[in-house]
């Protein structure tokens, strides 16, 4: 079953072609990686999927629905979640609040019920809190519930960001360079974590990553982009030896 289908996706930033005729079909349960040099337009693709930018051209179909033109929060509620290349937690808020905010669209009470503290409010809050605690336990953050998120060590902030993304109950998870700034041991743990959440939450994952170790180890298919164009596509092994890819990354051989 196809979960995500992107066709002819194109986006210009006032003249600059950030993404050009990008196509991608993602089956349910797959883990696909997008790689490419800096500025190749990878993050722009994520921004287009999540509605932060509106594509100049092209279609994005997710779970049978068109996403182009749909407001960001509705795209997220429909089952797409993402993390950011440079961590974007709600820095001044607690770990718990970060997770609870991500359950905004799942609240089972109305504003009136909240303001007047009607019974459904307490019930709804309890549900949100329990779910948050469950998630934090899975991510081994249960001791940091009340910590201010900016005070967490880097690795934990990364984990919290993924936990927060999962709190929105996604079917598709977009990970934007999750291994950025991590040391080899942390990368190892991250690979395990991605495998684990994929199983536990029954996820389809689209991954942007620079660290080849991560990509080669977990990706089932790889798409290579440069200057907004897809230059290669295939299994990790095929990509590894593709001269075009080597050229894009290392420059042409003299």
């Amino acid at each position: 079953m196809t979960l995500l289908k992107i066709t002819h996706l194109t986006h210009h930033f006032s003249g600059l072609q950030a993404v050009n005729d990008f196509n991608l079909q993602l089956e349910k349960g797959e883990l696909v990686a997008i790689i490419g040099p800096n500025g190749a337009g990878k993050t722009t693709i994520f921004n287009l999927i999540t509605g932060v930018y509106r594509p100049t051209e092209g279609q994005i179909e997710f779970d049978g629905k068109q996403l182009v033109g749909v407001p960001t929060n509705q795209i997220i509620s429909a089952g797409v979640a993402r993390t950011f290349q440079n961590i974007r937690l709600f820095k001044e808020l607690t770990v718990l609040d970060n997770i609870r905010i991500a359950q905004y669209s799942q609240a089972e009470y109305s504003p009136i019920e909240a303001v007047l503290h009607l019974p459904r409010f307490a019930q709804g809050e309890k549900t949100i809190r329990n779910r948050s605690m469950e998630l934090l336990e899975i991510f081994n953050l249960q001791d940091q519930v009340e910590a201010i998120s900016k005070n967490l060590p880097y690795g934990q902030q990364r984990r919290l960001e993924i936990a927060r993304a999962l709190a929105t109950r996604p079917k598709l998870l977009l990970l934007d360079e999750p291994a950025a700034g991590m040391n080899p041991a942390e990368v190892e743990a991250l690979i395990e974590l991605i495998r684990m959440i994929r199983e536990t939450f029954d996820l389809t994952i689209l991954l942007i990553e620079h660290q080849m170790r991560v990509v080669m180890e977990i990706a089932e298919r790889i798409k290579v982009v440069d200057f907004g164009q897809t230059i290669a596509e295939g299994l990790p092994k095929e990509i590894q030896n593709n001269p075009k890819v080597i050229e894009a990354y290392l420059g042409e051989e003299e």
Partner: peptide
């Protein structure tokens, strides 16, 4: 409440708020 936390998330980072389903 849920809505108040939404208010705080707007103060912190409006784009990120939308990207974690806050209306």
């Amino acid at each position: 409440s849920n809505y108040g936390r939404g208010v705080l998330s707007l103060r912190e980072d409006e784009t990120a708020a939308g990207l974690v389903s806050v209306d």
